[in-house]
Design a protein around this nucleic acid. Structure first.
Lengths: 188, 188
DNA sequence: TTTTATTTAGATAGATCGGTCTATACAGGA
DNA sequence: TCCTGTATAGACCGATCTATCTAAATAAAA
């Protein structure tokens, strides 16, 4: 069965928002690219802001699901590295030129508290998953370590855009390994 | 002496672009906030795109100068950490809710190759400074290590926006220390 | 077949966008 | 004093923005 008009709109808007930016992408371009008429969009979404919210929410849920799947499938003691790998895989597939949540935070910081809060929550959700994984792997100082890994993964968003996925993700993996090793030997 | 109209425009535009985003900030708002008339802007800058370029260029030069000053004043063997400190200091002062260059890359990736290239060059300039410092400090594998530190510093841009400057910068410092220690003990 | 919900087409609204134009005012330096 | 460069005020342009409205077409469910 073909995707619903609503799903077509979500997928098209996500692509355009990510490639062109939020404010630079007009309603007309979205509906044209989705092969749909303007009223169909406003039938499914109350406003452009509501559309942005729905796009980010759906994308975030997909991202979290891929993290959770990877963590659940990891061998004992390997949950943290599995998250790092899953994050890298996501960047390779869907996020080659920067993080859409960071972009949304910047574009809507003073224009929509709702969108800004959603994007911020997406970041803290990732941090929370890291904390859970680090704790599950039996590593000490798990909050501190999780925050350091968070720094790395956030940095890899930009690094992929600047240096390319191959180089950036290899660096991220190696740096994560170094942080994890250092965590064992470091004095508390 | 009061700042020139041109400088007023640059400072005002920088603030508005950073706080509200590039596309979401109109020419009218800039000139009004700068206390200047519309034609004065177009007398000094050929277009909005040229204004964005000038703003980013000036900001980047200020940033680079602060890095170079810090590196030059560092004790022998401490240039790398001095750069990390200087970067953190910059975030505290001027970049509390995300990196304006990353924002520009996102907003202009498909709208202005010139702006996108400038923002990308800003990132590679930071990476180059890190490489120089790491080499000057006599650390091995300096390219690889510099790229890992680059990841950290890029991550701290987002981390400051999400977790606040205090927490994020403490983590960044600690993680950089850990990476530097690990660099000594790691097998090539 | 009738009802109900969805989609289409297209006109329309008012605001704002980046950018241009002209005429006027006002400096400081020659 | 005159001249040159800069700033002001404000009208103006066409394009685009988000959003709404109506009327007709379409399809699936009852």
């Amino acid at each position: 069965m073909p995707a619903s008009k609503r799903d077509q709109l979500l997928a098209t808007a996500e692509r355009l928002f990510y490639d062109q930016g939020f404010h630079a992408t007009g309603i007309d371009r979205i509906v044209t690219a989705a092969g749909v008429v303007r009223m169909t969009l406003y039938n499914h979404f109350a406003s452009k802001e509501a559309l942005v919210m729905a796009v980010l929410k759906a994308r975030h849920e997909r991202f979290m699901a891929s993290l959770d799947t990877a963590a659940a499938a990891a061998s004992p003691g390997q949950a943290t590295l599995a998250l790092v790998e899953a994050h890298g895989h996501w960047l390779e597939q869907y996020s080659q030129h920067g993080c859409i949540m960071a972009q949304a935070m910047g574009e809507y910081a003073e224009h929509s508290a709702e969108i800004h809060a959603l994007a911020t929550a997406a970041k803290t959700d990732l941090l929370a998953r890291l904390e859970t994984a680090v704790a599950r792997d039996g590593l000490d100082h798990h909050t501190r370590l999780a925050r350091r890994l968070f720094l790395m993964l956030e940095g890899s968003n930009t690094a992929v855009a600047v240096l390319g996925a191959e180089v950036a993700l290899a660096d991220t993996r190696a740096a994560a390994d170094a942080l994890l090793s250092a965590a064992w030997s470091e004095t508390p």
